[in-house]
Structure formats: C-alpha cells, structure tokens
Computed example of a mutant assay.
Amino acid sequence: MTAPIDIYYDFRSPYAYLAWWRIRRQQALSSWQWRWKPVSIDVLLNLQAGREPLAPYVDPLPPPKRKHFLADIRRSANFLGAPLSPPHQPRPDPAPALCVALRLAQDGIPHDRFIDMVFEAMWQHRRDIGTREVLTNCLTSAALGETAIESAVSPGTRSELVAQSKQAYEMGIFGVPSFVAHGEIFFGADRLDMLAWRLEQQSTPSIGQGAMESG
C-alpha cells in the first residue's frame, strides 16, 4: 500500500465510529496509510436536500427507518465487539471537534490520537464533544497542546469546515464514512471489505501483465 486512502468522517456518525474501530484494530486495515478528512454530515445532508449548507438540522429518516437505524447500530457494534454507549443528550455539536482536527491537519500536526480520543469520548463515554472541557481532555490525552482550540473554534475555521464539506459533496461524497482510493468512492463502514478487495485487485498484476513484464 503506497497511496493514502482518504476517509471522510464526522464524529457524530455511529458508522464512522464503527469504521474507525475496525481500522484501528484490524491489522490488515491499520497497516494502510489513512488520510482523515473531517466533514460535516449536516452540511452534506443539507446540500442533498437543496438547503443552505448551515440550515437547521432536519432528521432525514422516516420513523421506520430511524427505528431500524438505531437497532442496526447496536447490532453492528455487538458484531464487531465495539463498545457503544447512547450518545450524550442533547445532541452534541461535533463542529468544534471537527474544526480542531481540521486545523491540526492544516498545520501538519499528527493527530490520529486526537481522533481516537474524540471517538472514544463520544461513543464509549457519553461525553459532550462540543464542549471545551472535553476537547481539552482529548488534546491532553493525545499529547497535544490545548492552544489548538483557540484558532480551531474561530468562525474562520468553521467556514473552512463548511468549504471542505461542500468540496467533498461536489466530488461525490454524500455521507460518512466514505473512503476514496485511486479516485473510487466507497460509502459506508460495511464497504471496508470491498475496499480491501479492490485494492488487492489493483495491486496484483494480471497473468498477461506479469508475463509481459518478465518477458
């Protein structure tokens, strides 16, 4: 594996959490080079519905699908052995954490451990990742300075998060988690196996190609 795989995520997505869980714990996945790209699922949903990027949140799921969605998350977590606690209520605002991740990436600061801490805080410990206290704890646990919060939560950085989300939507990203490898998009935590299959296909020369190269 040489080229990095882009993974578009929002901390608020339970399926992004489950994808993160697999990537961190399965050797075949953790050995790949991942490039984590924060986007706002709210912005993506608004763009799909023809609304302004920062329009108020509207639940896109009808009641039967919402019921299945919640049951499927619990079932998927049990299947994968991933700890899962009901999210903090009221609904946490993931934007501050996403902005911190975006700013760290822009500054070239390795921050995979920060991503780990935020996912754990929200989905394992029911912490409100929209608060400064929780973000400070995540940065400290990741051995990063909390000064990153100051620039990250500014209106300018939030605008950059919206811009990155819009750019992702324009290239075909409509939900999270989404993985992009060699220009091909795979959507959903359950597509990690298909992604692995595709990458293996692309890295294994065909019989004809091998014969030509050795001839």
Rank of each mutant, 00 (worst) to 15 (best):
V58F: 00
P60E: 09
K67V: 11
F69A: 10
F69N: 10
L70W: 06
A71M: 09
R74H: 13
R75A: 15
R75L: 10
R75S: 15
N78V: 08
L80K: 04
A82N: 05
A82I: 06
P83Q: 11
S85M: 11
P86Q: 10
P87H: 05
Q89V: 08
R91L: 08
P92F: 02
P96Q: 03
A101H: 09
A105V: 00
A105D: 12
Q106M: 12
G108I: 08
I115A: 07
F119H: 06
A121E: 12
Q124R: 14
H125V: 04
T131E: 03
R132F: 00
R132E: 14
R132T: 15
R132A: 13
T136Q: 09
L139S: 04
T140H: 07
A142W: 02
A142S: 15
G145H: 13
T147D: 14
A148I: 00
E150K: 06
E150S: 14
S151Q: 02
G156F: 01
G156R: 13
T157W: 00
S159N: 11
S159F: 01
E160N: 14
L161T: 02
A168H: 04
Y169Q: 08
F174W: 13
F174Y: 15
A181Q: 07
H182N: 15
E184L: 11
F186P: 05
A189T: 04
D190F: 02
R191F: 08
L192F: 06
R198Y: 15
L199N: 04
